[in-house]
């Protein structure tokens, strides 16, 4: 059972994306596409022919598979409904972050590969943002990791207690900013359009079409759900199963879906309430969040809880 839990991420990630879109549309007074729309998009894209530029190299063709595979491997490490996670004994939260980084590295290369202006722009911006986001994410996770005494996500999820202390709140708020930046959501990037000069994520995918685009999009949805799962595991692991009895796993699955729904609501709320920042204003947002993460670690060391 625990070896198959990563399939949940693969199957449900487009649903989360559709849910966020729908909630966001409702909050803004629109009807919006149905919740299942991302599935239809993926199926449509998988059936279509691809157009691949003649000037591209093997990197362009390999990247969709590398990105998809690295995201699925990250899904295998993170505990989702039971802390006896699939391959958790082999990797920990640092491995998860660097699997994301590997995917991002190839995505940026592929953005440059076709030689279009927008691709290069997207890649350069993505790398700039990731330089700021990665250490912040690490620091905020380390606060939880120190209090659990392990960087293994399953151990962190098992040892978290209910009573929140200031370091946890600080780390959580830094982590939320990190998730927003990593999933390319509104204060950092606009996920709804690829017609903006300010695009980051969409800029890198501009040359992709058909099956490759489907894989890249799917990997992006999975990464988003994985980050939500990571947040749930680290900061509110209430209800996650650690034994392995079928009934408990079913309950844990229900609780997990509730958490994902709540996080989708939170994301839609953030996206509706904030405006997109100018790219050169991003360092002060991300730098602020970095200082939050840093302070969370410091206050953890001071208060020691």
């Amino acid at each position: 059972m625990e070896y198959l839990q990563f399939i949940i991420i693969i199957i449900f990630s487009p649903l989360i994306q559709g849910l966020i879109k729908k909630l966001k549309a409702n909050m803004q007074g629109r009807v919006g596409p149905g919740v299942l729309q991302p599935y239809y998009d993926l199926i449509r894209l998988l059936r279509k022919d691809m157009v691949v530029s003649r000037v591209t190299s093997w990197i362009f063709k390999a990247t969709p598979y590398i990105v998809f595979a690295s995201t699925v491997s990250a899904a295998m490490i993170i505990p989702i409904i039971t802390t006896r996670s699939s391959f958790g004994m082999m990797g920990d939260v640092i491995a998860v972050i660097y699997l994301f980084a590997a995917g991002r590295f190839f995505m940026a290369l592929a953005g440059l590969d076709a030689g279009t202006a927008f691709g290069g722009e997207g890649s350069s911006r993505e790398m700039t943002v990731s330089i700021l986001v990665e250490p912040m994410m690490m620091l905020s996770i380390f606060t939880a990791a120190i209090s659990a005494g392990s960087t293994n996500v399953a151990r962190i999820a098992e040892t978290q207690n209910l009573f929140y202390s200031p370091p946890h709140i600080l780390a959580l708020s830094a982590f939320v900013v990190a998730v927003v930046a990593e999933t390319g959501r509104i204060p950092v990037d606009n996920p709804d359009t690829h017609l903006e000069l300010t695009m980051i994520h969409e800029g890198m995918l501009l040359e992709y079409s058909g099956r490759y685009l489907a894989l890249m999009e799917w990997a992006h949805y999975m990464k988003q759900m994985l980050l939500f799962t990571l947040a749930a595991d680290i900061f509110f692991p209430i209800g996650i199963d650690s034994g392995g009895a079928p009934a408990l796993i079913a309950a844990s699955f229900g609780i997990y879906l509730c958490k994902m729904f709540l996080m989708a609501c939170a994301m839609a709320l953030i996206e509706s309430a904030r405006v997109k920042l100018r790219f050169f204003q991003l360092p002060s947002l991300l730098g602020g969040a970095f200082v939050l993460a840093f302070l969370s670690l410091l206050t953890y060391i001071m208060i020691g809880k």
């Binding site: 360092p283 002060s284 991300l286 730098g287 602020g288 970095f290 200082v291 840093f294 302070l295 410091l298 060391i301 001071m302």
Partner: peptide, 22 residues
């Protein structure tokens, strides 16, 4: 000094205080 840098420096100040008074 710009926003991000002054935030970082104030974070470092906090760290220095914690380290020296611990």
């Amino acid at each position: 000094i710009n926003n991000a840098l002054s935030l970082t420096i104030s974070g470092i100040l906090v760290a220095v205080v914690y380290a020296s008074l611990s």
